[in-house]
Write a protein that binds this DNA or RNA. Sequence first.
DNA 1: ACAAAGCTGACACAAGCCTGACACGGCCGA
DNA 2: TCGGCCGTGTCAGGCTTGTGTCAGCTTTGT
Lengths: 222, 222
Amino acid sequence: MRYLLVEDNRELADAIVNRLALDGHAVDHAASLADAEDCLAAAQYDLILLDVMLPDGDGRDFLTRSRAHLETPVIVLTARSQVSDRVGALDQGADDYITKPFDFSELEARCRAVLRRRGGEARNEIALGNAIFDPLAGTLRHGEQTIDLRNREIRLLEVFARHRGQILSKSQLMDRLFSYDAEVTENAIEVYVGRLRRRIDGMDLRIETVRGLGYRMETGEA
Amino acid sequence: MRYLLVEDNRELADAIVNRLALDGHAVDHAASLADAEDCLAAAQYDLILLDVMLPDGDGRDFLTRSRAHLETPVIVLTARSQVSDRVGALDQGADDYITKPFDFSELEARCRAVLRRRGGEARNEIALGNAIFDPLAGTLRHGEQTIDLRNREIRLLEVFARHRGQILSKSQLMDRLFSYDAEVTENAIEVYVGRLRRRIDGMDLRIETVRGLGYRMETGEA
DNA sequence: ACAAAGCTGACACAAGCCTGACACGGCCGA
DNA sequence: TCGGCCGTGTCAGGCTTGTGTCAGCTTTGT
């Protein structure tokens, strides 16, 4: 998927770009409305993330103007204090909004939801070997039993599930699980992988250790 | 089926028209109340989708005025779940309501439900474990007893009911329960979940806490 | 065989959640 | 108009539990 992020706060923008890039999305960054126009003229986007406070104007005006000839779904990023910003965002054609500060995982979830809504219905369950993982429900079904996973386990499994067979380094996984300012040891990842392994024990699904590089999830028996 | 959509937001209107057209329905689009009057005078509709915020007046007033000589069922589209919007809409003769942003699949489902109801069939009740929830009446029946829920409880339970088994974050729930400009703490959600839990105690229906992520409603015993 | 890397049981802690009590305001009846 | 009631949202304090660290052990590669 190709995203356009319109956001003037450099730091936040970089964080979002990096984060979404981890999901395999191409994200272009525009720091102003003028930039955004250029990008829109040059490429076709699947989703636009639009800040409302921009150096050269209000994102909402932009939204109103573009809506007529723009089909791409838009998620508006607003600051919590700016109450009036949120008011009417949807009426002006936004598909959803999210208030800063937000969790990246929530942003991702909303992106997915909006894209899903646009693209018609799509169940969001992921087959993992002989088990079924439902990231929205946070559950893992295997035969009769359904296990409820916890926050970190869900997030971790989701990353693995979306990058099956791929080696993921501990630092990559940390980026997905923890916020930027969180100071966490890599050992935490080892711990969570361990916990997750115990959860998926018995399913034909395993997380292999690639010494020195990271972990890789594989489905199917050894 | 022939629908009339009264909605001034161009983008949203187009999306709805397209979507319903896929189901083989004929959908006329009116961007204002005046337009709507013209359409109603000119053709016979099976269902009306009515936005409340329109350039030339309030959809609800229109509803009140037309109800006297109009038998066609109406579904009101409200921006966010202003309680008063919902209550007012139903009192003024709406058959159902849906809050933006909504899934198209949900809109379709409600259209079907309303048409079915008009056709003399069952009410729009939702089975929840061994209880029956009527979101329009705001009641929950369980065996002999029928409990009346309060506004917030109804809305909350409705969200849960329509997303059964899915984890809903507090901010998602807030979006559903409160209007844009309401400044409400997430704690309010905790409180309402607590109150709702007490209501559904004894039915095989429970709201689980997913620490750090939100809540999830499950039916069926443990 | 040695060091580096990974695993894991136990633990302490704070984030997150729950809940009783309360204050506010709208609504209705008197 | 007044007063009481009911629904609502906040708050503070207590409690729960997921979480990340640590220490010591095991595994792996060279």
